[in-house]
Amino acid sequence: MQRDRMARLGTMTLATTPRETSGGLVYRQRLATRVTHWLWAISLFFLLLSGLQIFMARPDLYIGQQSGFQFDNAVLSIDAVQNADGSLSGVTDLFGHRFDTTGWLGVVETASGPTPRAFPTWATIPSYRDLGSGRVVHFFFAWLLVGTLALWLVASLANGHLRRDLLPGRADFRDLPRDIRRHLRLRFEHRREYNTLQKLSYVAVLLVALPLMIATGLSMSPGFNAFAPWLLDVFGGRQTARTIHFLAMLFLVAFFVVHVLMVVLAGPFNELRSIVTGWYRTRPEASDA
């Protein structure tokens, strides 16, 4: 009986080796990775909706140090206009091109009827206009995001997750065309290692987009400006930093949509088990030259 137990333990040990590609359960996600993943998901959800609440106070984006009527540096503007018949229309100006966005941006349906409002009530926290509460929620989850990213970075450096699993090497870049073809054909590899597109997307989010969000957010803080005024110069002014902050948010939303789609297409049960318990079922894949 003791011999059988040792044999089972040996099989489990072999199943968790980094280069395992045959069928079977492998321990793919460490505890630190799983915990920080869900903390990021919660933080980004509240940051997005509270951020849109804050953005409604001035739903315009500019490039440069300053903004106002005397400057011609707007890249995005969401507004409500009154039509000749007295009705309201939502309009969005993007790089000088005007679009009717009634019902989505500028003018939305509420219990009171068509209402001048940059975003629908379901897209903001709180759902009603409350800049103060939106800022409180936003800053709380912003610091939670900062702490979670710091925790993940320390843990990933200590356990080798960053070097071993995320940073792409030469072999990954050589495999990139093949990986793109497989994704276009909806043929997904089920192995312990991340594929090249996963590595590139995770690096873009964890080492570029999230730090950029944090840095641009800090650059809009008057208190942090007093501590590190040079950060505003790095981003070319508060208005440019605000625009970059908004664009980084759009990138993260796009990543989330694609990420969820890939989870569904690749097998949601297996993917969710991996990020909840750490265990992932691999499957041999046919070669795709």
Rank of each mutant, 00 (worst) to 15 (best):
L52S: 01
Y202T: 11
L247S: 02
Y280G: 07
L94K: 03
V108F: 04
P222H: 05
D79Q: 14
T282D: 03
S67M: 14
A209C: 10
I63A: 05
L94H: 06
P222I: 02
F119V: 06
H259C: 11
R192G: 01
L144Q: 06
G132N: 09
M220R: 11
T92Y: 00
L149I: 03
L186Y: 07
Q70L: 10
R164A: 14
Y202K: 09
V81D: 01
T240S: 15
P126M: 02
F141G: 01
F55I: 07
F119C: 08
E189P: 00
R58S: 13
D60R: 12
S87D: 07
L247Y: 04
F46L: 13
L265M: 15
R8T: 12
I54K: 01
R273E: 10
P114F: 00
T33Y: 13
S77T: 11
L250Q: 09
L48N: 06
V108H: 06
G64L: 10
Q53P: 00
A74G: 05
Q82R: 15
L272Y: 11
T196F: 04
D72N: 12
T121K: 05
L145W: 08
K199N: 10
L206P: 02
Y194R: 08
L151H: 00
T11F: 09
G223I: 02
S221T: 11
T101F: 02
L131I: 09
L131P: 00
P268F: 15
W230M: 10
V91L: 13
L25W: 11
L210K: 08
G267W: 06
D72A: 10
D288I: 10
V107A: 02
G96T: 11
S221Y: 04
F256R: 01
P229N: 11
V35A: 07
T243V: 05
D165A: 03
V263Y: 09
Q65K: 15
Y202F: 15
